[in-house]
Design a protein around this nucleic acid. Structure first.
Lengths: 334, 334
DNA sequence: CAGCTCTTTCGAACCGGTTCGACGATGAAG
DNA sequence: CTTCATCGTCGAACCGGTTCGAAAGAGCTG
């Protein structure tokens, strides 16, 4: 690979002149600029990232931390990966993706060695051990998911409580008096996924306000447990006229389950749900739902992170941004 | 962040001594080694990755190139991401994940600037434009997916032709005489996904050898097109007694479709398939299948790549490795 | 005790960029 | 015709590691 010195020699100027010609930080005569441009072209020169990072203390790389949970319905977390990566590229950054199950040590590894300028934390839990590590390494970070204490970091998440309230409202307006709620599997709560109870509490509280009966359950993540659990729940509440599903695996399996029971939607049962837009499209889900947009969250997280890194004045104080839910009516209620 | 100079001063030695103490490339007395270790501990020193890369010409980072196709059933490619990342970590490497739709330019960007030591190319097509770029940048690379001309690179892929032959054998042994084959959507062929016709040709050729009738079709990737297309195909061949499905989206939707038609498996129809193990588990697919293991492919690709990078003697000449298919009998045939 | 080897450590150079201060040439102002 | 900016360029220092050659000191040999 050609170095900046090769270019300089080839163009008959000094290394600093080449550097300035590239960065434009000082005026260079049009003539030499052309000569340098030609030399760069001919030698196929690309600046060495390590050397540049060394001097400028900027790597133009963002860390993306994700953790996998074996028991999980897979597409969930990966939906953020692509949008985050694309948003980063738009801002001139690359993505160092880390899946190390030991999050805190991974954070130290990539941050202490200055491999990244900032970090995106995916699927942040209520008491996430990674937050302490983020504080220690003193790097800008953006969190997707709500922790108990954001320790002064930027957080973005869907407003799950509001989403639940909107869905209950939707059912209440249509006169439903008894509702079943299926949440994510219980182990997600144990892991600290606050969205489970944020949604659940929102729904229960709003139902109580209207005097609606609501039966909250934790769902399953794999077949055939899903089918038997849904069947069990429906059998237990024959009077219920509506179902709220906050569980990707269950909602994907639901059309088949209901067909087998000969339950028509919305005639026999109204169904509303919460899932991400991509997910709904992939499975062509026919349910009225709050469609969260992973792409939107991911992009915003990256943009805010870059503002922090560049100390942009419009970064403002640490933001806790709840994305307002949007309900899409697909006619699965009445 | 503390530098190696800080550590040296703190321990009362020179920078080079600290470096040797860390790398172990020269003997250092036990006493000073301890002193240095303590200084490192106290100052919380981690070597700067950029500086190290600059001198050693090694970044300990692998590039992972993937491209997304909007029309795709999402989980497919992402299944490789986690295994690749974990295998890399096991070998001491991190992953720079690039989703740039312009693959060749992305390759130049990360390779020419020496951000990575090697590159894993995912979902390589028959005439993949990224291969030319890989050749130009002269970096070790591992391909997952079979190109027409591997230009001397290491390739790993499932042996799709053999998989098809095994499945046809399986049906032939059980006396089936008329078979339907559903391949991936046709646009995958147009994109150059060689596995489509490698599988298809394998199946057709083997069926011909036995004198079986086989009806090959291209499937769909999204509902409701999947359902109507499968129904159409089944209607068109009422005599067919077996179905081979090489299409994730279709196989996921198949249980519901068959139930609606009141077709029992295997009594009325035998079904065999090809999908990845994780995928099958996620959807609890009840079909006898060749289960490909994305985790296995990803890991092997990384290991071979690292052997290339380190010029390990057991890297050998460029390998074209076809992973032999394994059939898992789930009783969906008779 | 001179001469040699071995061990341990140091200083300097280097990797490939960026950036600061200075310097010569040019043109405008006084 | 000085004087003084301004412009364009250069040389040197620096970022934070690694590595080579050499030096200092200890121990051994003859």
């Amino acid at each position: 690979m050609a170095t900046i010195g090769d270019v300089a020699r080839h163009a008959g100027v000094s290394r600093s002149t080449v550097s300035y010609a590239i960065s434009g930080k000082r005026a260079i005569s049009a003539e030499t600029r052309d000569r340098i441009a030609r030399a760069i072209e001919e030698l196929d020169f690309t600046p060495n990232a390590g050397a540049r990072a060394l001097k400028t203390a900027q790597t133009m790389v963002l860390g993306l931390l994700l953790q996998f949970h074996a028991d999980e319905f897979a597409p969930a977390m990966l939906q953020y990966v692509l949008p985050v990566s694309e948003a980063a590229r738009d801002q001139g950054y690359d993505i160092l993706m880390v899946t190390d199950p030991n999050g805190p040590s991974a954070i130290h590894r990539i941050a202490d060695s200055d491999m990244v300028d900032g970090i995106v934390l995916l699927d942040v839990t209520f008491a996430d051990p990674r937050l302490a590590a983020i504080e220690e390494v003193r790097k800008p970070a953006s969190l997707i998911g709500l922790p108990r204490d954001p320790v002064g970091l930027d957080v973005i998440d869907l407003d799950f409580g509001e989403a639940a309230r909107m869905l209950v409202d939707h059912l209440h307006e249509r006169g439903h008096r008894e509702i079943i709620l299926i949440s994510p599997p219980h182990h997600v709560v144990e892991r600290g996924g606050s969205y489970v109870w944020r949604f659940r509490d929102g729904a229960v509280e709003r139902a109580a306000r209207y005097g609606l009966q609501i039966h909250p359950y934790y769902g399953e993540s794999r077949q055939p447990a899903i089918t038997s659990s849904v069947n069990g729940v429906l059998d237990a509440h024959p009077q219920a006229t509506a179902l709220i599903v906050h569980n990707d695996a269950t909602v994907a399996a639901l059309p088949a389950i209901l067909r087998d029971r000969d339950v028509r939607v919305p005639d026999d049962l109204s169904v509303v749900s919460l899932y991400s837009r991509d997910f709904g499209e992939e499975f062509s889900l026919p349910f009225t739902a709050v469609e969260s947009a992973a792409a939107d969250l991911g992009r915003r997280a990256v943009e805010q992170l870059v503002r922090r890194i560049t100390r942009s004045p419009d970064a403002g104080p640490p933001v806790l941004r709840f994305v307002p839910p949007v309900i899409t009516d697909k006619g699965s209620t009445r």
